[in-house]
Structures are given as structure tokens and as C-alpha cells.
Design a protein around this nucleic acid. Structure first.
Lengths: 334, 334
DNA sequence: AAGGTCAGGTCAATCGTTTGACTGACGAGA
DNA sequence: TCTCGTCAGTCAAACGATTGACCTGACCTT
């Protein structure tokens, strides 16, 4: 039970060298010229004292925190879990710590104020909208930042996935099954991903020479999906299949269809964007389009590590996008 | 206009006072005697320069980082999302930043090494097991830490929920519906929560003078739940109801029951611990026991804020535990 | 013998804040 | 007149690690 903190000076004393030597040994300074024997004295001293460098002192001196932040809107959304995993592992392998936060209730502004200056070397923003003052807030912090999965209208600092293609894959699957009345349960108008998926839907429908079915927008939540589905199935020209923009809404959509008395996939097929482990345990197991979310987090960190505060990034991540067929899609009735 | 970083000295120069005054104004030092006029000069200087205190320097001087860590095994498990939310909001209101991490692949040891010394003032460990060397690792960091939802055999530093009572609530509900053959789909033997829920199950069964049905353990995952359920329903004395230790396993368990050809709740009732929004969108909507998870996170932070590295904590959080009846439970067949 | 090279380190300024100790000016009381 | 007490700030030493510049002695070369 060592209580008082161990510093460089303590190690230096024990190893009978200058603090500078210890520092250079720890940081593997290539300019350091040292006898093997001395190096070992330092190393054992570090070990015996249980020395850990003080991050605050190091950050102060070097002006780098070796820490990246990841800001997400909501931990309850499992889609972000994938992004976090990718980002965390990439950060670790680059020698950074990734800290994830979500400023419950408050927004990014308060988060940035609380995080203060000098605590993180860069920030990843997943699923952030195009809120007022966002860019100003970030620029005041004078650290590099990148949006994941969303573009900001005002600046080029984002990595996104090929949502058009994902949507097309889903629609093509339905078309191949024989569907002609394919509706679209879109995402919230504010979300950039929603727009891109809708665009992909439209393009694929045009390509297949099919009229765009009814389109209803809803938040990326089960509750939103359930409500929207009810409206989609209520119209006169009932669709035989629905392309849902997000897996969370799809979970609600399935419930909505069931409680409206429709059976999936007999009466209506459902396919959604984003694959999750959960999808195969739903009833019926949900057909999805798998997106490289972990890769997105990974790429964000990689870019952040080599970015200056004023650099531009505008990238559509090329990664495997594939349709995972399960049981929620089938040929149309009749 | 972000030139080089703005420091205290810049503010002091602009306000024509000493750095000390600026510092004391910022920290609301009660011993500071200052004219209203001067204070305002300082405040406007801060504002005009967009000054943010440098966290590294502050931490170095005060030996406090104003940051707490929360370590969880897996972001994909939605149960932790609740804990994070509670902890984050409590931390914010106490002036701390909460950072959540999960050392993918590696364990807590590597996480602690990466996080370094002096970066966080305290650590919350959710769902950590009783791994070897854990306590040593934590004690070397010389910061207060608390386990959430799990006890360590070796030290008294935990806050848990009343899992016995949660289990009893679930079992009593099944008994009241008329079930007599109530099986238990338990959690992994390594998890402390699993043990307490099993104990609660046993006690409630004894109380109801019922023989303990078959008990099968599984990890807190859908896959584990599905496999375990198959085994439970395969035996000679098939249970009419199953108490599942965790909602994630329950999702799998439902799937397992369905693919074995049983209908829920007609053939078998299912009730699980932990309520999630998702539960009402499953098919059928899952009956659960709601646990105060956010409160657990909240309490953890509160304790951490007023804890010394050697203090003991052993607390069963008193919070509302209630049965949320949905459609996965019904009277037994016949 | 003077100069040069190299190994093997040491020295000390610096990063930005905090904080206990101190000071100069002014007015009041003895 | 001298002392004392406020008021309104100022001074400067930390905190712990990093890093460019410097030093010392041994050995070699011409």
C-alpha cells in the first residue's frame, strides 16, 4: 500500500541518475546514449517503485493529452456501441485513450465547457446534427474534430458511409423478391443519414422503374417506427414491403405492423439499415443491411491522429456493405 | 480568431491585474478582496479572449483532475447505458466529467495503464468480475474506486441492488398466476448478480413451498439465453414458466422457445430482470422487473466524490424495484 | 602537445495554475 | 506623531515531466 505518489525524481534518486535520463528512458529517446547497465538500474527502479508518469505534468509540458473524445447523443442506441468499439481499439493501438461522453440533457456546448481546454487532443462527433453554434464551439477549442456519419453543411470535416448504396441494396433485394409497392420509413429530416438513405431509395426505385411508394419520416427510435408503420399500412394502396432507414425504428415498425394485424413477412416484408446481433433474435428475424460501423470509428481515430485543426476531411468510407437476409422479407402475397 | 492558446497571463495583462487575481476570480476564492470594477475588468477580459483554463496545469497544481472514470465490459449491452446515464448526469452536477471506457479485448489492467496516473480522481467499475490482480491494480493507482452491481470478495467497495428482491418479485408474480413448475435461467457463475438472483429465486420458491425447477446457467447474452432455453424445455418435467436472470438472455430465450415450437405465454411464461424500452417491442412484449440502474450510477458518483482511497463502502441501494407486466407471462396451460 | 570525437550523461528553463505570504496606501484612533 | 488595521491586490514558489544545450573525461589523431 504505497500512498504518497512516486515521481520521476524518486526514480532518479533510486537509480542514481538525473531525472532527464529517466524521462528519456521512458520515452525511448533515440538521442540518449546510455550504458545497458544504467538503463537497467532505471528500469528496475521504475518497477520497484511502481512509478507511473503523471499525465497532467506531461500534458502541460508537451501540450498533448494523448486522449481523444467521442461524443454521442445517446448510449442507449446500440448503433453507437459498434462505433465506440472500433474507435476505442484503434485509439488504443495508436497509444491514445478514447473517452466517450454524451452530455445527457445538455448539448455539446456544455460538454465542451466541462471537458475544458487541453484535456483531449481531438474530438469525434457521432450522429451530431447541424446545430446552431456547433462549429463555433468546436473551433474555439482549437482542436481537430471530425463528424462521423453526418455531414455539417458549413464545414468539410466528416467521414460518412455509403448510405445510398445501402439503401439501394435493400430496395434491390425487395425488387428481386417481386415487390412493386415498396414504401419507405425514413429517418428524421434533421439527420443527414436519413437524407442519404432516402436518396438511395429514390434512385433504386427509379432504376427499377417503380413508383415511389408512400414515404413517412420518423425518429430513429422504436416508438417513432411503430407510429410511422401504422400510418404506412393505413393508406389505400398498401405497400407489400417497407424499407426502414434504421434498425431501431424497424424494431418499432415490426411491432406496429403486428398490432395492426399484419403478419411479417406474409403480409408485408421489412428490411432495415444497420445490422445488430439483436436482429436475429427478433420475431421474425430481421433482414438488414450491414454497415461497417466499427470501421467508421476506427477511421475517425486514424484521421484525427494525423490532422491539424484546419485540415479538411470529406470522406465516404469504402467498406463492406452487405445484405443479411433473415426472415422478415419474402415474396409479396398473391 | 484562435491565435495561440490564451492563458491566465494574457487575461491578467488585458485586465491590468496579477494572474493571481484572475485565478481567484475564476475559482471564486472567498478570501479575495476586490473592487467590483476590477472584477468586471477581469470577467470581460476572460470573455473577450475566450479564455478556458488549461486542465493539465490545473490538475498538476491541485492534484485533482475533476474527472471520474467508468469502466464497463461492453458498450453493446444496453443495461450499461442506463448506468452511464445516471452516472454522467450526477457527475455533471457535481462539476466532474465522466468518461466511460471499455478496453476492448484487453482488461482493466491495460486500461489503467493507458489512463495513466493523475487523469481521473476516481473509478467506477460496472459489472467487473473478481479477476486476479484486480484489486492490486486499482490500489496501485491510489485513487478511490467502487464496484457497481458486483461485489469483490476481497474488499468492501461496492454498491449493489437488491437482486434477491427482484428475483422474488418475478417468482411471486409467476406463482400468483398459478405456475408450480418454475425454472430458472441463471446468469454466469462468475457474476455476482447471477448468484444473488439465484438466491432470490431459491428463497421465493421455498417461501411458496415449490420444488426448485431445473436451473441452467448461461452468459448474459442472447446466444447464451437461446441455448439455455432449449435445454430447459427439453427435459422430462417441462416447466410452465421461466425466470430469466437478465433481459439480454431473455431475448435469446424467447427465440429459443419459439424455435423449439413453444408459444409464449401459452406454453411457457417468461419474466426477466432489467427493464428496457426494447422489452415492450419484443414479441410478445416481455414482462420484466425494473431495477434502478440509473440511480446506481448516480449513487456511485456521489460516493466517489466524497471517498478517500481507503474508505469502505458496502451498500445495497434502496431504490424502487417493480414488476412491469407485459404479455410474456400468463396462467399456465390447462 | 594540441585538438577532435564520442560516450554518457547533467543542467535548468519551461509548460499554465494555484495559493500562502506579503506589501503599499490610506484612514482612524491613541 | 506613531501605530494599527483594512483594503486591494501582488509575489513567487510550487506541481512533475520534457528537452535543447551543455559538460566531463577517455581515447584517438596528427
Amino acid at each position: 500500500m504505497k500512498r504518497s505518489r512516486v515521481t520521476l525524481a524518486d526514480v532518479a534518486t533510486m537509480a542514481r541518475v538525473d531525472r532527464a535520463v529517466v524521462s528519456r528512458v521512458i520515452n525511448k529517446d533515440p538521442t540518449l546514449n546510455i550504458r545497458q547497465e544504467t538503463r537497467e538500474r532505471v528500469l528496475t527502479a521504475i518497477d520497484r517503485l511502481g512509478y507511473r508518469p503523471n499525465v497532467a505534468a506531461r500534458s502541460l509540458r508537451t501540450a498533448r493529452a494523448h486522449m481523444f473524445g467521442l461524443f454521442i447523443p445517446d448510449f442507449a442506441n446500440p448503433v453507437y456501441a459498434e462505433i465506440i468499439k472500433g474507435a476505442e481499439s484503434e485509439a488504443a493501438s495508436q497509444g491514445y485513450v478514447l473517452v466517450t461522453g454524451s452530455a445527457v440533457g445538455a448539448g455539446l456546448g456544455e460538454y465542451m465547457d466541462r471537458i475544458g481546454q487541453g484535456r483531449i487532443d481531438g474530438l469525434l462527433l457521432a450522429g451530431a446534427g447541424d446545430e446552431a453554434g456547433l462549429v463555433e464551439h468546436l473551433d474555439r477549442a482549437a482542436i481537430p474534430w471530425i463528424m462521423l456519419n453526418n455531414r455539417s453543411r458549413s464545414v468539410e470535416r466528416y467521414v460518412i458511409l455509403d448510405d445510398e448504396r445501402a439503401a439501394a441494396l435493400a430496395v434491390e433485394h425487395l425488387v428481386r423478391l417481386g415487390h412493386r409497392r415498396i414504401a419507405h420509413l425514413a429517418g428524421p429530416a434533421a439527420a443527414d443519414t436519413a437524407g442519404r438513405r432516402s436518396a438511395g431509395y429514390s434512385a433504386a426505385m427509379r432504376e427499377a422503374r417503380l413508383p415511389e411508394g408512400p414515404i413517412v419520416a420518423a425518429g430513429y427510435t422504436p416508438a417513432g417506427g411503430a407510429a410511422a408503420m401504422a400510418r404506412l399500412l393505413d393508406g389505400p394502396e398498401r405497400p407489400t414491403a417497407v424499407f426502414v432507414a434504421n434498425v431501431a425504428s424497424a424494431i418499432g415498425a415490426m411491432e406496429g405492423a403486428r398490432s395492426a394485424g399484419f403478419e411479417i413477412p406474409r403480409d408485408v416484408s421489412i428490411v432495415a439499415v444497420h445490422d445488430l446481433e439483436l436482429a436475429s433474435y427478433l420475431f421474425p428475424a430481421l433482414t438488414t443491411v450491414r454497415m461497417p460501423l466499427a470501421e467508421l470509428g476506427r477511421r475517425g481515430v486514424t484521421l484525427l491522429a494525423g490532422l491539424k485543426p484546419d485540415d479538411k476531411v470529406a470522406e465516404v468510407l469504402a467498406g463492406p456493405i452487405e445484405l443479411i437476409q433473415r426472415r422478415s422479407t419474402a415474396p409479396p402475397p398473391g
